[in-house]
Amino acid sequence: KNAAKIVNEALNQGITLFVSDNKLKYKTNRDSIPSELLEEWKQHKQELIDFLTQLES
């Protein structure tokens, strides 16, 4: 999976991924984040940080 797909899947579940101080963060109104999503974010962390940083610049 690529970073764009992961970010879109998160958005579809009401979760916004973003970068703050070079760290991957998220915002959501959900009570909890599915563990498989958290695991996927960890596996692709640097790719996600790079992707989101490019989007914001």
Score class of each variant (00 low, 15 high):
Leu55Asn: 13
Asp21Glu: 11
Ala3Glu: 03
Glu9His: 07
Lys23His: 08
Ile49Gly: 01
Asp31Tyr: 06
Lys45Ala: 14
Lys1Ala: 14
Lys27Arg: 12
Gln46His: 09
Ile15Pro: 00
Leu55Trp: 12
Lys1His: 09
Glu40Leu: 13
Leu17Arg: 01
Asn29Thr: 11
Phe51Asp: 00
Thr16Gly: 03
Thr28Glu: 02
Leu17Ala: 00
Lys23Pro: 00
Arg30Tyr: 05
Ser57Trp: 08
Glu47Ile: 13
Ser35His: 13
His44Asp: 02
Lys45Met: 15
Trp41Cys: 04
Leu38Gly: 03
Leu17Asp: 00
Gln46Leu: 08
Gln54Pro: 07
Thr16Arg: 09
Gln46Glu: 12
Phe51Lys: 01
Gln13Ile: 10
Glu56Tyr: 10
Leu17Cys: 01
Ala10Arg: 00
Leu17Val: 03
Ile6His: 02
Asn2Asp: 15
Asn12Phe: 10
His44Gln: 05
Leu48Val: 05
Asp21Leu: 05
Asn8Asp: 13
Ile6Asn: 01
Gln13Tyr: 12
Leu24Met: 03
Asn22His: 09
Val7Ala: 04
Gln43Asn: 12
Asp21His: 09
Gln43Ser: 11
Val7Asn: 04
Gln43Trp: 07
His44Lys: 05
Arg30Pro: 02
Ser35Gln: 15
Asn12Ala: 15
Asp31Lys: 03
Glu36Gln: 10
Ala4Arg: 06
Ser35Leu: 14
Leu48His: 00
Lys27Tyr: 09
Gly14Phe: 03
Asn22Thr: 06
Leu38Asn: 04
Glu36Asp: 09
Glu9Ile: 05
Ile33Tyr: 03
Glu56Cys: 08
Lys45Trp: 11
Asp21Trp: 04
Arg30Met: 11
Lys25Gly: 11
Lys27Gly: 04
Gln46Ala: 10
Leu55Glu: 11
Pro34Thr: 05
Glu47Ala: 13
Asn12Gly: 11
Lys27Thr: 11
Asp50Gly: 06
Arg30Gln: 10
Val19Gly: 01
Lys42Ser: 15
Asn2Ser: 15
Ser32Ala: 08
Thr28Tyr: 05
Gly14Pro: 00
Leu17Thr: 00
Asn22Glu: 06
Gln43Phe: 11
Asp50His: 10
Gln54Val: 10
Asp50Met: 07
Glu9Arg: 08
Gly14His: 05
Asp50Arg: 10
Lys5Tyr: 15
Gly14Glu: 05
Val7Leu: 06
Ala4Met: 14
Lys42Met: 14
Phe51Asn: 02
Lys45Ser: 13
Ala3Trp: 05
Lys25Ala: 10
Ile33Arg: 02
Glu36Phe: 11
Thr53Gln: 11
Pro34Glu: 05
Leu38Thr: 04
Glu47His: 06
Leu11Arg: 10
Asn12Ser: 15
Lys25Leu: 13
Lys27Asn: 08
Asn12Gln: 14
Ile15Ser: 01
Pro34Lys: 05
Val19Tyr: 05
His44Asn: 13
Ser20Gly: 07
Leu37Ala: 04
Thr53Asn: 11
Ile33Val: 13
Phe51Glu: 02
Thr53Arg: 09
Glu47Arg: 05
Glu47Leu: 11
Ala4Asn: 07
Glu36Gly: 11
Lys27Met: 09
Asn22Trp: 05
Ile33Pro: 05
Leu17Gln: 00
Ile33Ala: 04
Thr16Ser: 07
Lys23Trp: 04
Leu55Arg: 13
Asn2Phe: 08
Gln46Ser: 08
Asn2Ala: 13
Leu38Ser: 04
Val19Trp: 04
Asp31Pro: 15
Val7Lys: 02
Ile6Leu: 11
Val19Met: 05
Asp50Ile: 10
Glu9Val: 05
Glu39Gln: 12
Glu40Thr: 12
Thr53Asp: 05
Leu11Met: 09
Ala10Ser: 05
Ser20Tyr: 11
Lys42Tyr: 15
Glu47Phe: 05
Phe18His: 05
Lys45Val: 14
Tyr26Lys: 01
Gln43Gly: 06
Asn22Gln: 09
Lys42Glu: 15
Trp41Leu: 07
Lys45Arg: 14
His44Leu: 05
Trp41Tyr: 04
Leu52Val: 02
Ile15Gly: 01
Thr53Cys: 07
Ser32Trp: 10
Gln13Met: 14
Ile49Thr: 04
Val19Phe: 04
Lys5Asp: 15
Leu11Phe: 10
Leu52Glu: 00
Leu24His: 01
Lys45Gln: 15
Lys42Phe: 15
Ala3Thr: 07
Ser57Lys: 04
Gln43Ala: 14
Ser57Gln: 13
Gln43Lys: 14
Leu17Gly: 00
Val7Ser: 02
Phe18Gly: 02
Ala4Gln: 13
Gln54Lys: 15
Ala4Trp: 12
Asp31Ser: 08
Ile6Cys: 03
Phe51Ala: 02
Thr16Ile: 14
Trp41Gln: 00
Leu24Glu: 00
Gln54Asp: 08
Lys42Asn: 13
Arg30Glu: 05
Asn22Ser: 08
Glu56Pro: 15
Asp31Thr: 12
Lys5Met: 15
Glu9Tyr: 07
Ser20Glu: 15
Leu24Pro: 01
Ala3Phe: 04
Ile15Leu: 02
Asn29Asp: 14
Lys27Val: 10
Leu52Gln: 00
Ser57Arg: 02
Lys1Ser: 12
Thr16Pro: 01
Phe18Glu: 04
Asn8Cys: 13
Arg30Trp: 06
Leu55Pro: 10
Glu9Ala: 07
Glu56Val: 12
Ile33Cys: 03
Glu36Val: 09
Leu48Thr: 01
Lys45Phe: 12
Gln54Met: 13
Ile33His: 02
Gln54Arg: 13
Thr28Asn: 04
Asp21Tyr: 05
Glu47Val: 11
Gln13Gly: 05
Ile15Trp: 02
Ser32Ile: 10
Ser32Tyr: 13
Leu55His: 14
Ile15Tyr: 09
Leu55Ser: 14
Glu47Ser: 08
Leu37Thr: 05
Lys42Ile: 13
Lys1Pro: 10
Asp31Leu: 11
Ser57Thr: 13
Lys5Gln: 15
Tyr26Pro: 01
Leu11Gln: 10
Val7Gln: 03
Lys42Leu: 15
Gln43Asp: 07
Asn8Pro: 01
Thr28Val: 04
Pro34His: 04
Lys42Asp: 15
Ser32Asp: 10
Asn2Leu: 13
Leu11Ile: 10
Ser20Pro: 01
Asp21Gln: 07
Pro34Leu: 04
Asn12Thr: 12
Gln46Cys: 07
Leu24Asn: 00
Val19Pro: 02
Ser35Trp: 10
Thr53Val: 12
Ser32Gln: 11
Lys23Val: 12
Thr28Asp: 03
Arg30Lys: 10
Asp21Pro: 01
Pro34Phe: 03
Ile49Gln: 03
Ala4Pro: 06
Ser32Asn: 14
Glu40Phe: 11
Ala10Tyr: 02
Thr53His: 07
Ile33Thr: 03
Leu48Ile: 15
Gln54Trp: 10
Leu52Ser: 00
Asn2Arg: 12
Arg30Ile: 07
Asp50Ala: 12
Asn2Met: 10
Thr16Asn: 06
Lys5Val: 15
Ile33Met: 04
Thr28Arg: 02
Asp50Val: 14
Ala10Thr: 03
Ile49Glu: 03
Leu48Tyr: 00
Leu37Gly: 01
Asn2Trp: 08
Val19Glu: 02
Gly14Asn: 05
Ser57Met: 13
Glu47Gly: 06
Thr28Phe: 04
Tyr26Glu: 01
Lys45Leu: 15
Ala10Asn: 02
Gln54Cys: 09
His44Trp: 09
Gly14Trp: 03
Glu40Trp: 05
Glu40Ile: 14
Asn29Pro: 06
Asn22Val: 03
Ser32Gly: 08
Ser57His: 14
Leu11Glu: 07
Pro34Ala: 05
Gln13Cys: 08
Glu39Arg: 08
Asn29His: 11
Glu40Tyr: 09
Gln13His: 12
Thr16Glu: 13
Phe18Arg: 02
Lys25Asp: 07
Leu52Arg: 00
Lys23Arg: 08
Leu17Asn: 01
Lys5Gly: 10
Arg30Asp: 05
Asn8Ile: 13
Ser32Glu: 11
Ile49Cys: 05
Glu56His: 12
Lys25Pro: 00
Lys27Cys: 09
Val7His: 04
Asp50Glu: 15
Glu47Pro: 05
Asn22Gly: 15
Glu39Leu: 11
Leu55Phe: 12
Asp50Ser: 12
Ile15Cys: 04
Ile15Met: 03
Lys25Asn: 09
Ile49Asp: 01
Gln54Phe: 09
Leu52Ala: 01
Leu48Cys: 01
Lys25Cys: 11
Val7Tyr: 15
Asn2Gly: 12
Gln46Ile: 07
Tyr26Thr: 03
